[in-house]
Structure formats: C-alpha cells, structure tokens
C-alpha cells in the first residue's frame, strides 16, 4: 500500500531514498516516476542523478552543494504534489519473439509444469501488455509486471553458463529478457532479435520505466529477417501510445 507520507532512507553521505509504499504496485511506481520527472524539471543544484525503482527513488547528490537536510525538505515538498499529469502517456513497445525450439529450450517444460499445451503458454505469455516497472541490475534489463501466474515456473536448479542476448525467460511469477549474453537460471521460452541495450544509442536502453511491452510470436524465418534488419540498422521498433 501507499504510505501516507513518503519515507526517507539514508544511503550514506551522497544518496537518499524516497520510498512511497511497501508493495510492487503500479500506483506506487507512478509516484516514484513522477518525482523523478519533477526533479529533472526542477534541476535542483547538487542533484547528480536519480534511480527509479519499484517503490522508491534513489537520489544521488553532492553534499558540498546541497546538504542532506535541505535536500530532504525539497524532496518532501516536491513529493507532496503528485502531479501525475507530468508523466507522458505510456508507450507500448512490440517485442517480436520466436518461441520454443532453439530459441526457447524450456518452453515444453513450462507447459508441462503448468499442465498446459505449448500454444497455450505462448498465448498466455504473448499478447498481454507488461508494465516496465524499472530498469536495473545490468544495463537495459527490464523488471516487468503483469505475467499470468498460469505460466509461472521455478528457476533452473543449475543455472546455465551462457544464455544468448535477447532470451526471454520465466522465473517464478516474473518474466524478463536478457539484454546481453550472460549466465542465468531462468526458464527460457523464447528469444527476441531486438537489441535491448546499445551504448551508441541515446538513450542507450530500448526500455524506459513506465512504458509497456508486449511480446508477439514470430516464426524462425521472421526472426532471421528482423535480426538482419536490426544488424543493418534498418529495423524500426513498433511503438504505440497507450490511451
């Protein structure tokens, strides 16, 4: 639930957390993102950067320019008037994804685990908008909300050493996409040819907190086509404004 008053938590001498609630909840997350945006607009001298997460905003500051008490007072004031109109309408980003086979070696396990057919798992996983609550942990990784609990599956007992970039996975009741090749223990159900993170792009991450993404099922042939277009820089990501 949303706290009556935001809580301020200390993160050493250069950072402060503003926490709005104690749950993973779209309303609480909106408060976090609104404060981030308002802070950016205000341009408070001494504020270095902010990190929006599920339910709190981490604010990095330079203590020689603004002291912690002053900053806390300012943040308190700014958090009082939650002008949600500040937030722009969310975007829905389409993520073309090849399910199963070499792209998603655990798809059949996820289906069997939930007593579903493979097409049912794909239908339940794709087609639904997922809220991007935050980006974090590693460059470009989206923390998503909204997956059907009908396709939940436990993590692998032994994590894989190497997972290809773009792999779409399930861990318990969460779903996510690996932005880069890495080790990992999620059940892999598919893969997208899109590049989630590109240091040469501004902003470098494909996703921004507050937007939504939707997986769309594509064939291996389409996967190859999209992958080529992405490599050649001719692919434009499908994005629509949500009303």
């Amino acid at each position: 639930m949303i706290y009556d008053e935001p809580r301020f938590l200390t993160g050493g001498d250069r950072a402060i957390f503003v926490e709005f609630g104690d749950a993973i909840d779209p309303q609480i997350n909106r408060r976090v993102r609104t404060l981030a945006l308002v802070l950016q607009k205000e341009g408070i001298p001494g504020v270095i950067e902010t990190v929006p997460t599920y339910r709190s905003l981490l604010v990095y500051f330079e203590p020689r320019q603004i002291n912690a008490r002053q900053l806390r007072e300012t943040l308190y004031q700014l958090a009082q008037s939650p002008e949600e109109g500040e937030l722009r309408k969310p975007r829905l980003i389409e993520i073309p994804t090849a399910y199963g086979g070499e792209y998603g070696p655990d798809l059949e396990f996820v289906a069997a685990h939930n007593s579903l057919s493979v097409p049912e798992v794909v239908r339940l996983h794709a087609g639904t908008p997922y809220l991007i609550y935050m980006i974090g942990f590693i460059p470009g990784f989206p923390y998503l909300g909204g997956m059907s609990s009908k396709v939940a599956a436990p993590r692998l007992a032994t994590p894989r050493v190497k997972i290809p970039a773009g792999s779409v996975g399930i861990a318990d009741r969460q779903t996510g996409i690996y932005p880069a090749e890495s080790p990992g223990g999620w059940q892999l159900i598919g893969r997208t040819p899109l590049k989630l993170f590109d240091p040469g792009r501004e902003p470098p991450a494909l996703f921004q907190a507050g937007n939504y993404l939707r997986f769309t099922s594509i064939t291996p042939e389409e996967f190859t086509r999209v992958q080529q277009a992405v490599t050649q820089g001719t692919y434009s990501v499908k994005e629509t404004v949500m009303e």
Binding site: G11, G12, R14, A15, F17, E19, D22, A23, I24, V51, T53, Y54, R55, S56, L57, L58, Y60, M134, G136, F137, Y143
Partner: peptide
Amino acid sequence: ISDGIPLGA
C-alpha cells in the same frame, strides 16, 4: 523489493 544501490552500500 529491489531498490537502488548507493556506492559503499
């Protein structure tokens, strides 16, 4: 619930 990690945390 995952949150930010300051330097020196």
